[in-house]
């Protein structure tokens, strides 16, 4: 079995998604459900904590791509934090750092939301 988990925490108006394990074409639908549930609840300010994510393939990257614009259209965003270097290098290969806020930790991401008046 692919070992992947996604958890959800609320911090005021921010939703924190915690990811761990292996995010691939088999496990990406679980993350997709997280995002559709947040959109249904009008929660658009999302911080994804990738501290315990060991692996990501393009199926996982595709989930972030599919939902970020919806979040931004609703005065929110998806900010990615605490990436392991091996995971960051995959985001980097596809040019994500130019398109996404990829940050050190949750605090930095939440401060950035506040600075942006979001």
């Amino acid at each position: 079995m692919a070992d992947f988990k996604s958890g959800l925490r609320d911090k005021d108006e921010f939703s924190i998604i915690d990811l761990s394990g292996y995010l691939d074409a088999h496990t990406a639908p679980e993350l997709e459900t997280r995002f559709t549930n947040l959109i249904d609840k009008n929660r658009f300010k999302v911080v994804v904590n990738l501290k315990d994510l060991e692996y990501i393939s393009s199926a996982g990257l595709g989930v972030f791509m599919a939902y970020i614009e919806t979040m931004r259209e609703n005065q929110g965003d998806i900010k990615l934090v605490s990436l392991k270097p091996s995971v960051y290098s995959i985001f980097d290969l596809l040019g994500f750092p130019l398109l996404y806020d990829i940050m050190k930790d949750e605090e930095e991401a939440i401060n950035k939301f506040k600075e942006q008046g979001k």
Partner: peptide
Amino acid sequence: DMVAYLKEKKRGGLGIHL
């Protein structure tokens, strides 16, 4: 084209590119 992809909420083709 990643910028266009985001605007169009697309996601396919990334795997081959990678």
